[in-house]
Every structure is written in C-alpha cells, then in structure tokens.
Design a protein around this nucleic acid. Structure first.
Length: 271
DNA sequence: ACGAAGCCCTGCAAGC
DNA sequence: TGCTTGCAGGGCTTCG
C-alpha cells in the first residue's frame, strides 16, 4: 500500500531514467481506474518530452510541454520500467513506451489509483488545490496543527489523516507517529496541546524520513525488477502488532476500528 | 461547517 | 478441496 515514502521512492527511482526521454506511444488496456483514464490520453502524450516528475502528497505529476499526467497509486498501484515489448500482466493497465527502449508501466490490481491528464496549472486542479502542506516542508509546524485544530472534535488520528490538514499521512504512518508522540489516537484534535503537537510533527517527519531512507535502498528495483520499494515492515512499532508487546511498557498493544481503519496503540503509553 | 459513513476494487486468509 | 465470507485501505462523495 503505497504511502508517501513509497511514492517519493518511486519518484526518485524513476526520474533519472525517464526525464529527457520522449513518449513514443501509449497503450491503455484498462481505463476503469478510480476515475476513467481519458480516452484521448495517447493523443495528448505521444511525441511529448518528459520534462519533470514531481510529487504532491501521494500524487505524482509527470510534466510534458503540453500538460501534466497526474498519477495516483491508490492502494495497490506501482510504476516500473520494463524493456519495450515485454508482455503485460493481468493488472498492467497503462504503458508509456519511451524513446530509450524502456516502457513505463502502470500496474494496479485493485484499480483504486488514477491516471489523469491536466492542462494548465496542475495545482489549480480540483484534486490538488485544497491539499494541505507537505509533512516534510517548512509550513507544516506545531503552531499550524495546533491553531487549525482548535474546536475540532474529531479524533486526532482522523485529523492528521485529513489531506486538507496535511498530505501523505496514511493509516500506517498515522498509527506509528501517534505512538512515537505518546498521543492516544482517539483524543479529540482540539484537545491536544501545542507542545504535544510539536512532538507529533517531529514524529510524523521521523517515520516518513526513516521510511524514505529504507525505500532508497531498493531503488535499483525500479529498472527491470519488480518495481516495489521496501515496505518498512520490520520497523513498525504498532501497526500490525495488535496483541503483541509495547516496546516501551511491555504491555499489550490494543486494536480498535476508527473510520473502518485498523488503529493500533498502547493504552498505557498513549494518552 | 463538521464529522461519520459509504463507496470503489481485488487478493488474500479464514472458515465451513 | 473448493466454496463463501470478511478484511485491507486512499480519498472522494454523500449523508446526517
């Protein structure tokens, strides 16, 4: 399940291999993703130079002189480079055949992801314009989280997973960051102090940066490999560990459902 | 305006 | 063994 670190790892892995290349042809085998792939995508892209690959939250923006390709990996999506002509698998929905002899292949078994075309300023696009700050950027700070949360009654975990508040904090990292910050996931967002938001900001950065650092070790997988970055599993402190022992107090970790998301925490260490 | 629930989808695991 | 059922979840959309 690609979260921000996996998307950033994908961006870094792909960029040096695709930028400066030209799109020779495009094949859309399955347009039924989260939103339909535009029927005229091939006409928009063919013959275009790939100028830049940027990330905004968990979205990737592949820039060409005529517009941007907006990509989201959803739950199960991935992008990889394969040799031109390699037979597609069942869930290989979109191919961009490049001038380099490699094909950029979009795969997504569950089809929660998206491949869209944007002309004009992509940051004005409906899907991007209301996104909150980047968690690794300067504007994401304790003061910001604190002020914006005043009066909010939703659980702090739901608050930090709201992409209008901050982008890129998915379920796994929300669980991990709240554990590191010692904050109970059900605590009302408006009842978290400024000092504890400072700890939370640091914790969110820490888990994301650690995951990116680990993902970076498998960058070679992006060419000819399976295209799957490391999933950071071995470092998880709470996620997927319900019933196991808390590293801090050695008590059992508890699991609840919050908004149909698995939520794991230590009832003793997190208040 | 806010917060919660619903929905999209397939692979996998558990249960019978 | 082969079915059915349930679960996983990002993020937009709808409902209350």
């Amino acid at each position: 399940m690609p979260e921000l670190p996996e998307v950033e790892t994908t961006r870094r892995g792909l960029a040096p291999h695709i930028l400066g290349r030209c799109i020779e042809s495009v094949q859309v085998r399955e347009p039924r993703l989260r939103y339909p792939v535009p029927p005229d995508l091939a006409a928009r892209l063919e013959g275009s130079l790939l100028v830049d690959l940027q990330r905004r939250g968990k979205y990737l923006l592949l820039e060409t002189p005529r517009g941007n390709l907006l990509l989201h990996l959803g739950m199960s999506g991935s992008l990889k480079l394969v040799p031109a002509g390699q037979a597609p698998g069942k869930h290989d929905h979109v191919d961009l055949v490049l001038s380099s002899g490699l094909t950029l292949r979009y795969t997504d078994p569950r089809r929660f992801g998206m491949v869209l075309w944007i002309e004009g300023d992509p940051m004005r696009h409906a899907l991007l314009e209301h996104l909150g700050p980047e968690p690794l950027g300067e504007t994401f700070a304790a003061d910001y989280l604190y002020r914006r949360s005043r009066g909010r009654k939703m659980p702090v975990k739901s608050y930090i997973m709201d992409s209008r508040v901050v982008v890129g904090v998915g379920n796994i990292y929300a669980n991990e960051a709240l554990y590191l910050a010692g904050i109970h996931p059900l605590r009302k967002a408006g009842r978290v102090s400024r000092a504890r938001y400072a700890r939370l900001v640091a914790a969110i950065r820490e888990v994301l940066l650690a995951a990116i650092a680990q993902g970076g070790t498998s960058l070679r997988d992006f060419v000819g490999g399976d295209g799957r970055p490391g999933y950071f599993r071995q470092s998880l402190r709470v996620y997927g560990r319900a019933g196991e022992t808390c590293d801090g107090c050695e008590g059992p970790l508890r699991e609840i459902r919050l908004g149909q998301r698995s939520t794991v925490y230590c009832p003793r260490c997190q208040r």
